[in-house]
Simulated scan of single mutants.
Amino acid sequence: MALITASSAPATVQASALCFFRPQSSPISLKSSSKENASELGFVTSQLSGLKISYDQCAPSSNISSTIKFPIQPVARRICPFTGKKSNRKNLVSHSNHKTKKLQFVNLQYKRVWWEAGKRFVKLRLSTKALKTIEKNGLDAVAKKAGIDLSKK
């Protein structure tokens, strides 16, 4: 039973147009000299997995110059889109008058609100103050004032 380690002979795996080489030593530290060596050899070095990816040896005639774009998920911020309310900084004041900073967050709720013009429900994340304003003035008027297009949601 033989164990294969990272220090054994380089293993080559071909996947369509890419070759992956396991480095001889432990994970690569990119210093100025190793950057120059990597650029001379045409390698793209990955620090996370310690793999070298070579385009020159597998497919010498094809030029691969595309960038990889990862989908960026938007982070739900604690801001009401209708009223613009956001968190407030406050001080917690002790008996000895020692002040500690704290955030007061907006009371945001996920609500399904009936949109009369669209004849459907719209799922929104809004503050309770915005919910009261929508009940008073209507969803179309509040969305128009805030500059929100409800047909996208």
Rank of each mutant, 00 (worst) to 15 (best):
R22C: 09
R77Y: 11
A15G: 09
L18G: 11
P74L: 09
R78V: 02
G138E: 06
F121R: 02
T133F: 10
T83M: 09
L48D: 14
S87W: 03
V106G: 00
G50N: 09
T83K: 06
N37E: 05
P74S: 12
C58R: 01
T133K: 10
T128S: 14
I28A: 14
K136N: 13
Q109W: 07
T100K: 06
L30T: 04
F43Q: 00
T67F: 07
T67Q: 07
K145V: 14
P81K: 08
S33M: 03
A15D: 08
N63E: 08
E135F: 10
H98C: 12
L150P: 00
S32P: 01
A117R: 02
S8Y: 04
E135V: 06
K90S: 14
S61E: 09
C58S: 08
D140P: 03
P60H: 05
S96F: 03
G118I: 03
E36V: 07
C19N: 09
E135Q: 15
K153M: 09
K90E: 13
S26M: 02
K119E: 14
Q73G: 11
D56S: 15
H95I: 01
R78K: 09
S29F: 06
S54M: 03
E116H: 04
A59W: 00
F105P: 11
T5W: 09
E36R: 10
K102W: 06
N63S: 15
H95A: 09
M1G: 12
Q14W: 06
E36T: 12
S151P: 04
T5E: 13
P60L: 06
K144Q: 10
S94I: 00
K129L: 08
K99P: 10
F70T: 02
I134D: 14
A143N: 04
G50R: 07
